[in-house]
Design a protein around this nucleic acid. Structure first.
Lengths: 359, 359
DNA sequence: ATTGGCACTCAGAAGGAAAGAGTGCTAAGC
DNA sequence: GCTTAGCACTCTTTCCTTCTGAGTGCCAAT
């Protein structure tokens, strides 16, 4: 069944008002809007019909209406109007984007904190592998008597290292030999292809440095098997700033007992391929503890074989348009930064205006 | 003024009862304890005196007593009885201690989660430098055309790396030369001793690889300047499980607005040299937002030049004895793990930072 | 010095009345 | 036939008031 234009307008108005007030919306409030030209009685009739259709709900008989999950979904898919970031907002986002650290994990964690601060809601970031990783290059560096640094470069351009301490000391040339063997036999293999037999073979041909081999392989396997980087979840407490959790601390607690880092790290898999942004509205979430909770996720590019996700967690009554706009801005600029490569601050972004702002 | 033995016994009983019930303690409840052999009237008299001395407080005229901050302090310093971990508790602590990751930062983060889970309170971990760090060893590895991996070993046994991408390609021998120059002139220097002039000098003598030099030095400086590792703060939501925050979500929010990672990372400086454990009881905390919040911190050893801190945040009414026991157990075993730090499971400091940011 | 007894205090629970916001429906108006 | 004003009705919320009970402080007796 199709909605009339007026019904769409009313639904949109109700979502907009409810999002900002967190109170059920009455017919009077809608009628009072400048671009609504009919009386509250008419609105009441339409509201009754929208309720009939399952797009609105009534907390109790004599209260205003609030959007139902289906109502939110319709709003997101069809009615939501692009939110335009104000100049002030763009400016503070830009200031925020001057990341300090050069280390990837720290950057991701900083980004999460930023997003959380800018949206005033809990946020997370996570990096996910797009395809299976393989080792690209091994190096063994002598760092002192009995101290060896293993450096491992993966196909997704990640570099991992590990300091290994051995009771016996190994000669420089032995290390070279082992490194050569590793590079010859352990590169370009996925985690499954690395077997016990292979380990034996390597150990045999590795010469005096062979005690190192199992340690190297363990570490390599650990690195290859990581499907995603750390989940950086921050600002959980900000959920309490939302009226729906004001006097329901337990609920907020429950949310994050359910939505733990494990669950979050699996969320990117839910994202459809056809767009960078995805909404999980209330009960669309798998777990019933999250029935009043929504998640907005946005994908962004991190070079080779990796993709990043930033997400925001909030009550179902959430300013989807605004959050989407902010996340989009982050995602876009992070993508640029990672592509260009960010040694310094994001150069293109520091001037305060985005190209798209030009009239 | 000295306390009589009986007064001490009563104060201890009141703290113990209050800690477990979170309700003001009445004279009857104390008198009912098996090892108390006087009547409630006597207790009342003693309680009046303890209140006089500022060790107890009365929420209102006709309520029981609760310990004052000074009362908690006295309890911690003199009256607290060692809590003995039960077999069950030790067992689950042991199970928990089987850390999965080999990377240092991930281990610290895991430890934090564990501590939080085991104490059912927010917890944090942080690694701090004991002394100023210097670079010990540089290595430059060719990872592909225009891709160079910088490996940097610090005096505290941390290993950092960074993937650098250059538009031009550099020959293997040029890299060797630059590495040699770096090892000759940039090692054993503190961050202050690394100056612009030095950079110029290095750039001059570095030959064709000289464009790399400033990037290397930037990164080195960033690493050296880090006084402490990431602060891993987790389980904030568990604070809401405490009755004092049940209907005061804002308060909980305030706590973590004040006690952010910045503040936490500076807490270890407060620890006295003479003991591994430190209590910050309510108003002893600097910020007034934390006047009802206590922190228990415990130090532990991580090899060379580094020290770890694990901390637990909770309401002033906190089971100091139990928390201390659990933290102690963690600290002891983590210390062992890090010291052993040989080849087996939990390794010496390994910085698993990946450096997939590109140049 | 300790204890039983008793009057007194005060926070929190329980009950109830009044207020207010919003609806659904009906009948009149364009 | 759609829209609107009017009105009775429903329920939540709020504000009082009352009541209950835990706990104290003090006094007199042991």
């Amino acid at each position: 069944m199709e909605l009339t234009d007026r019904q769409k307008q009313i639904l949109r108005a109700i979502v907009d008002i409810y999002v900002s007030t967190a109170e059920p919306v009455g017919s009077k409030a809608v009628a009072a809007l400048p671009d609504v030209s009919c009386s509250s009685a008419t609105i009441r009739n339409e509201m009754a019909e929208l309720t009939q259709m399952g797009l609105l709900e009534q907390p109790h008989t004599s209260a205003g209406r609030i959007p139902s999950p289906a109502g939110y979904r319709l709003y997101i898919d069809e009615l939501m109007q692009d939110y335009r970031l104000s100049l002030d907002e763009t400016r503070s986002l830009n200031e925020a984007l001057e990341l300090k650290s050069q280390e990837f994990d720290k950057m991701m964690s900083q980004v999460g904190k930023l997003v959380s601060k800018m949206t005033d809601l809990p946020a997370y970031t996570v990096a996910t592998r797009r395809s299976e990783a393989v080792a690209k290059h091994f190096d063994l560096i002598m760092a002192g008597p009995g101290s060896i640094i293993l450096v491992l470069m993966l196909s997704d351009d990640q570099v991992k290292n590990k300091l290994i301490k051995l009771p016996v000391s190994v000669s420089e040339s032995d290390l070279k030999l082992l490194a050569a063997v590793l590079n010859a036999s352990l590169t370009d293999l996925t985690a499954e292809e690395i077997t016990g037999e292979l380990l034996e073979k390597i150990t045999r041909s590795a010469g005096p440095a062979s005690p190192l081999a199992p340690l190297v392989m363990d570490f390599t396997l650990e690195c290859l098997r990581q499907q995603h980087g750390d989940v950086h979840l921050t600002g959980q407490m900000r959920l309490l700033g939302q009226p729906e959790y004001k006097d329901a601390a337990e609920k907020a607690q429950e949310v994050f007992e359910t939505l733990d880092e494990d669950m979050i790290s699996n969320l990117p898999a839910v994202l459809p391929k056809d767009g960078p942004v995805q909404f999980l509205v209330g009960p669309e979430n798998v777990a019933k503890e999250l029935k009043d909770t929504s998640v907005v996720m946005m994908r962004f590019d991190i070079g080779e074989g990796m993709q990043g996700t930033i997400g925001v967690v909030g009550p179902t009554r959430m300013d989807y348009a605004k959050i989407t706009a902010k996340l989009g801005y982050f995602a876009e600029n992070l993508g640029k930064m990672f592509q260009k490569g960010g040694t310094a601050a994001p150069p293109a972004l520091t001037d305060g205006t985005d190209a798209s702002d030009k009239e």
